Amino acid sequence: GGQIFFVHNNIHKIHFIANHIQKLVPEARLGIAHGRMTPESLENEMMRFVNREIDMLVCTRIIESGIDIPSANTIFINRADMFGLAQLYQLRGRVGRADEQAYAYLFIPKESALGRDAQKRLKVLMEHSDLGSGFQIAMNDLKIRGGGSALGVSQSGHISAIGYDMFLQLMEQAVAELKGEPIPEPLNPEINIPVSCFLPETYLPDVDQRMSIYRRLSKVTDIKSLSDIKDELTDRFGPMPQEAENLVLKIMLRIYAIKAGVSRLDATETAIRLMFSATHITRPEVIIEMAREHSDTMELLPGDGLKVSIAAKNGRGAVVMSKKILKELVLRGTC
């Protein structure tokens, strides 16, 4: 017989699911695979599956691409309604890579609990099961999501897709145009921190994947979206190396800097210098008041600046202190 993938895209409950399956089918040899395992453990588990020492692999969608195991001819996808159409198509493609008949089973709640779009996605997937049906699935996916309306109901995600801050920014620009008022340029702060910030090739060997992640990070406007990308990277590629962690922190500083009206941040182990944008700061008195309260470590600089003296042990410590100061400025409401 063939082998089986059981996809459960929730790391916190994956062991519970595996134990439940083991109770239902005691004779089955089970393995578990997800992105938060060490590279060695993940590789060992996958090799056991390839060598047919495992009958069923309980895993996250880490198997979505780059997996070619001809002996696997069955896939179960738990809570299929939570996946996108392209993801389901990719997962379905993990089986049926040999001459044997392949099977894909999608587990969903009661149909009454499914959203309209989820029902449409599952229907399209069932209708297009032939070889080379990817184009038809992509076209149907476009019809379901809609195209061309940035904020309209035909575009996936609505406000959540672009972020609440971006939505407000677009609305402010539209209102300003109607009133004939000048539209301020979006703040694009310069962040200089004493640590290396990049995605190492050893972590993401594929250049297209690295570029895709860089593009997504460059568009992040809120902390939750940044956290989601970090969780996704950890799930797909394992624990992040220090350089990648630093990159996430740098993006976080940028988000807080925009909210605080900071146009430039320079951090070292001994001092943090902040320069504020006069066109984006609406309450400069907050900065003055903060400098007075911390007169032993803070001083105002000419040209809308603030210097904070620190004693960080290393570059990472300077980054943490920078985050703390920016968060305090945001809470006090400089903008």
Rank of each mutant, 00 (worst) to 15 (best):
V95K: 03
V95Y: 10
V95W: 06
V95G: 08
V95T: 08
G96I: 14
G96D: 08
G96C: 03
R97I: 11
R97N: 08
R97G: 07
R97A: 10
R97Y: 09
R97L: 05
R97H: 15
A98M: 03
A98C: 12
D99C: 05
D99Y: 06
E100F: 07
E100P: 00
E100L: 03
Q101V: 12
Q101I: 13
Q101Y: 03
A102L: 03
A102R: 01
Y103C: 04
Y103K: 13
Y103F: 14
A104N: 02
A104F: 10
Y105Q: 11
Y105V: 14
L106A: 06
L106D: 08
F107D: 08
F107Y: 13
F107C: 07
I108L: 02
P109S: 06
P109D: 12
P109E: 05
K110N: 14
K110C: 07
E111Q: 14
E111F: 02
E111T: 07
E111S: 13
S112D: 11
S112T: 14
S112P: 02
L114P: 14
L114R: 15
L114K: 15
G115P: 02
G115F: 10
G115H: 09
G115Q: 12
R116S: 14
D117R: 11
D117T: 11
A118M: 13
Q119H: 11
Q119F: 00
Q119R: 11
K120G: 00
K120L: 13
K120I: 04
R121H: 11
R121G: 07
R121T: 01
L122F: 05
L122E: 14
K123Y: 00
V124I: 13
V124F: 01
V124H: 00
L125C: 12
L125K: 03
L125S: 04
M126D: 02
M126V: 01
E127H: 11
H128S: 05
S129P: 00
S129E: 01
S129D: 05
S129F: 11
D130P: 00
D130N: 10
D130M: 05
D130A: 12
L131I: 15
L131R: 07
L131S: 02
G132D: 03
G132P: 10
G132Q: 09
G132T: 15
G132C: 08
S133G: 02
S133W: 00
